[in-house]
Computed example of a mutant assay.
Amino acid sequence: MLDSFIYISDLVGVITCAISGVLVATRLRMDPFGILVLAGVTGIGGGTLRDMMMGSTPVFWITDNTYIYVIIVTAILSVFLINRIHRFPAYLLPIFDAFGLSIFTIIGAQKALMFGFSGTVAIVMGCITGVVGGMIRDILSGQIPFVLQKEVYATASILGATLYVVCDYIQLGSILSMSIAMLGTLSLRLCAIYFHLSLPVFESDK
């Protein structure tokens, strides 16, 4: 049951992040290849780097091609729906991104602990899994990544990964721990979006 919960959650995260990639690509009027690239790197970019850093190779989507098929289908359906709607609300991108962030963060932390890494490393791997796909998407589209701005983004990821590590340490149960941590990440990110919360920024007078 746990393996099924993790696998389904991971696929849902891929779908939501792929949609956010499609939203950016269509907003910038990219061609079909560009749309597929942004959908792909957003959906599996963070997990790919995580697996490479932990030595879990071949990376997950090479051994399970379902991830590739899900990205392709998601991209096609998203483009079709966007063309039908013609305009999409600006708030959709950060919301889809928030769901993907919450899921990927916990999946990354869970996998790191499963491989026997420390809680600290699990938090780092959770954050990498959560934010790197969006970073690559933004860099390829010529934008400053969310995580490098004043957005409460990486902070939400770190909170979620920390919650999962703590819940796992006190043995609340894997599914309950993941659910609590995902909710914590998602709640903080959505509250930051809704209430326009941001981190302080620093600038030099020189």
Rank of each mutant, 00 (worst) to 15 (best):
I8N: 02
L11Y: 00
V12H: 00
V12Y: 02
I15Y: 00
I15N: 08
C17Q: 12
S20Y: 01
V22F: 01
V24F: 05
A25Y: 04
R27F: 10
D31T: 06
G34D: 00
I35M: 04
I35V: 15
L38S: 01
V41F: 04
V41T: 03
T42D: 03
G43A: 15
G45C: 05
G46Y: 03
L49I: 15
L49M: 11
R50T: 11
M53H: 06
M54S: 12
G55P: 10
G55D: 14
T57N: 12
P58M: 08
F60E: 01
I62T: 05
T63N: 11
Y67T: 07
I68Q: 06
I71R: 01
I71F: 05
I72G: 07
I76R: 04
L81R: 05
L81W: 08
N83G: 14
N83K: 13
R84Q: 02
R84C: 00
F88T: 13
Y91S: 11
P94L: 13
P94G: 11
D97W: 02
D97V: 07
A98N: 09
S102I: 08
F104D: 02
G108W: 01
A109C: 00
K111E: 04
F115N: 09
F117N: 06
G119N: 10
V121D: 09
I123Y: 07
M125Q: 13
T129Y: 02
G133W: 02
G133H: 02
M135R: 07
R137C: 11
D138M: 10
I139Y: 04
I139D: 02
Q143K: 12
Q143N: 03
I144P: 01
F146A: 14
K150R: 15
K150N: 11
G160R: 04
V166Y: 13
C167A: 15
D168K: 12
I170F: 14
Q171A: 13
G173H: 09
S174E: 11
S174N: 07
I175D: 09
L176F: 04
M178Q: 11
M178C: 05
A181Y: 09
M182L: 12
L186S: 03
L186D: 01
R189K: 00
R189Q: 03
L190E: 09
I193F: 13
I193T: 11
I193Y: 12
H196Y: 03
L197A: 06
S198R: 12
P200G: 10
P200L: 11
V201T: 15
K206C: 12
